[in-house]
């Protein structure tokens, strides 16, 4: 499943990231990679607000669709 399908408030485990290597590496340095938890906090104006480790990030729908999660 992809992150954009998750319910608000749900914490899920990342299975993998699809897309460019550079983006994968960037998300990795934030702590978003296979086996880590990610929580969908809200969906605001088409962007997904997520919690990774101790911080909040807004990511766009395209990116939310490239984050694979364990169903």
């Amino acid at each position: 499943m992809v992150l954009s399908k998750v319910k608000i408030g749900q914490t899920v485990v990342v299975k993998g990231i699809e897309g460019k290597d550079k983006m994968k590496k960037f998300l990795f340095s934030l702590g978003c990679y296979e086996g880590e938890e990610i929580t969908l906090i809200s969906v605001l104006a088409g962007n997904y607000v997520v919690n990774i480790k101790d911080s909040r990030y807004a990511i766009d729908a395209k990116m939310a669709k490239s984050i694979m999660i364990e169903a």
Binding site: I41, L44, A45, G46, N47, V49, S55, R56, A58
Partner: peptide
């Protein structure tokens, strides 16, 4: 747990709202 909803999250739901933002 960092993922609990905070005051900041609640404010965000208003100021970054689809129509109100």
């Amino acid at each position: 747990v960092a993922s609990t909803i905070t005051l900041t999250d609640k404010v965000d739901r208003i100021v970054a709202h689809k129509w109100l933002g």
